[in-house]
């Protein structure tokens, strides 16, 4: 899983330890921040803040624990803080239950879909669900780790993930249908 746990470098100078243990996760933190915020400039600001927070409290970071998960926890703390400062996230007005109820067809993920189409679909699902998908499916955190990072019960992570996948498939299905893929497969299946 690439959790990036501390491997006992307590004797190293602090800056070197930070470089070794925290900095390698910069890309992971950045892309998650970008996918949550939907804006590169804001994501850069938040990531910078995450690493500054991490550095300031790095002496308190317990060697041997999961540095990557710790950084993600700081990330969500910062995102939460900035969300209040900047704006309200454009959360879908429909509740998740309503969205699920309208799922009439789940198309298989077509190989013809591009990365940008998949990312566009991801950006259209509610933020809480998108967050769980990013943590569990993309960054490969275990449910328990994701629950710790988000400070929610593990059951919430599991239910949000299930709904998120359904919503994502629905979004991708719409795109696929726009190519005529879903119609063809539906027709074939009928």
């Amino acid at each position: 899983m690439g959790s990036g746990g501390n491997t006992g470098n307590a004797e190293m100078p602090l800056a070197d330890r930070f470089e070794t243990e925290a900095m390698p996760h910069l890309n992971d933190i950045f892309r998650t921040a970008y996918r949550i915020l939907g804006d590169r400039a804001r994501a850069e600001d938040v990531v910078q803040e995450v690493f500054l927070h991490a550095w300031k409290s790095f002496q308190r970071f317990e060697a041997g624990t999961n540095c990557r998960a710790w950084l993600f926890k700081i990330l969500f703390h910062c995102v939460h803080h900035h969300r209040r400062k900047w704006f309200r996230f454009p959360v879908l007005s429909q509740s998740a239950e309503t969205l699920e109820a309208t799922l009439v067809f789940t198309a298989p993920v077509s190989e013809q879909l591009t990365d940008s189409e998949i990312l566009a679909a991801l950006s259209r699902i509610p933020r809480d669900y998108r967050t769980v998908v990013l943590l569990v499916d993309v960054e490969e955190f275990a449910y328990k780790e994701a629950a710790d990072i988000l400070s929610v019960p593990i059951g919430t992570v599991m239910s949000r993930l299930s709904r998120a996948r359904k919503l994502l498939k629905e979004q991708l299905g719409d795109i696929a249908r726009s190519y005529g893929i879903g119609d063809a497969e539906e027709g074939t299946g009928a």
Binding site: I29, Y34, L122, L168
Partner: peptide
Amino acid sequence: ETARLRERLKQAVHADRA
């Protein structure tokens, strides 16, 4: 199907770099 979705999603998101 979910595994395939996951792989495509990972591939798409991981294309971003800081």
